[in-house]
Design a protein around this nucleic acid. Structure first.
Lengths: 140, 140
DNA sequence: AACACTAAGTTACTAAAAGTAACTGATAAT
DNA sequence: ATTATCAGTTACTTTTAGTAACTTAGTGTT
C-alpha cells in the first residue's frame, strides 16, 4: 500500500476544514455531502454512472440488463432523481413501442470523472480488503 | 462548469473497460464497486471518514455528536464494518467509564484522500445542482 | 377479428434496513 | 441511595427496497 505521511494527513484535515468551514455547523445548516453525495454515491447510482460512462446511450431495459439485479422500481426512481439533479438526460421517442434513451450530461461526465478515481481505488485495493475482512461481530 | 471534451469521455470509457474487463460479466462474478463501495461510499460512512480525517481520534459519543443525527445503532454497525474492512482502528481502554478511541488506519487515510476529491467536487457544484434540481416526478 | 408481443415504466404487496427510545453494566461522585 | 458516565445493545416502529403482476398503445401473427 502507498504509505501516507503525517504531512499528507494534515493536508487532508486542512482541506476538510476549508471545505466545511466550521465542520459541525455545516452539517446542521446545509451539507453538500449529505445532499449531493446521498444520491450520487448511492450504490445503484454509481453503477448507473459507470454503465453510462461506458455505453454512451442506454435504454431503460438495456441498463437494467447490465446492472441485472436492480429492480424496475429503483432504477426508475434513481434515473428520475439523477435526471432531476442534472447528471442524466432522458430522450423520449414517441415510437411504438416507446423508446427512451438515457445518457450522461456534461455535468454527469464531470462527476463520473471523479467517481471513477474512487472506483479505481476500490478495484486496486479489493484484494487487501477481502484479505483483511473480518466478521464484524467483534467480541469485546 | 468545466467543459468535458469527447476525447476525455472516450478516455473515461476506456478506463472503465480496463477496470471491469468485460464489464457485464464482472458484475455477476465479483464486482469491487458493489462490494467495496457499498460500504465505503455509504452516506454515513462518508461522514465518518470525513470527521476522522478532521479529528484524528474520536470517541463513540463525540463522533455521534458531530454527525448529530446518526443513531447509536447505525453508527455502531458502520464502525464495526469499517473496522472489519481495515479502514478504522478501534482502541479500547478498560477504564471506568469505558473509553474507546476510533481513528483512521493508513488504509483508511488512503481511501479518504480519494473520497475527499469527490466531496470537493460536491462542494464546488452544489450551487448548480440546487439551481437545476427539479421535482423528479416528471410528467411524460 | 382476436391474440400475443414490445418498451418503459407503475402499482400493490412483502421483506429488509434504518430510526427511536429505553435499557445495560461497572464504578464514582453527590 | 441516587444519579451520572460511556459505549454500546435490544425491542419496536417507520421508511426504504425488492417482487411480481399489471398498464398503454400500436404492430405483427393466426
Amino acid at each position: 500500500m502507498e504509505t501516507i505521511t503525517e504531512n499528507q494527513k494534515i493536508k487532508v484535515a486542512k482541506k476538510i476544514k476549508k471545505m466545511f468551514g466550521h465542520i459541525d455547523r455545516r452539517t446542521i445548516e446545509y451539507c453538500p455531502i449529505r445532499d449531493v453525495m446521498a444520491l450520487a454515491s448511492d450504490k445503484w447510482s454509481i453503477l448507473i454512472f459507470l454503465y453510462l460512462g461506458y455505453y454512451p446511450v442506454l435504454r431503460f431495459n438495456k441498463l437494467k440488463k447490465h446492472i441485472y439485479d436492480i429492480s424496475n422500481k429503483v432504477l426508475s426512481e434513481r434515473l428520475k432523481m439523477l435526471e432531476g439533479d442534472g447528471y442524466i438526460s432522458r430522450k423520449l421517442y414517441a415510437e411504438v413501442p416507446i423508446r427512451v434513451e438515457y445518457s450522461l450530461t456534461d455535468f454527469g461526465h464531470s462527476y463520473l470523472k471523479k467517481l471513477l478515481e474512487l472506483a479505481e481505488w476500490a478495484e486496486k485495493h479489493k484484494g487487501e480488503i477481502l484479505a483483511n475482512r473480518k466478521d464484524y461481530n467483534r467480541v469485546v
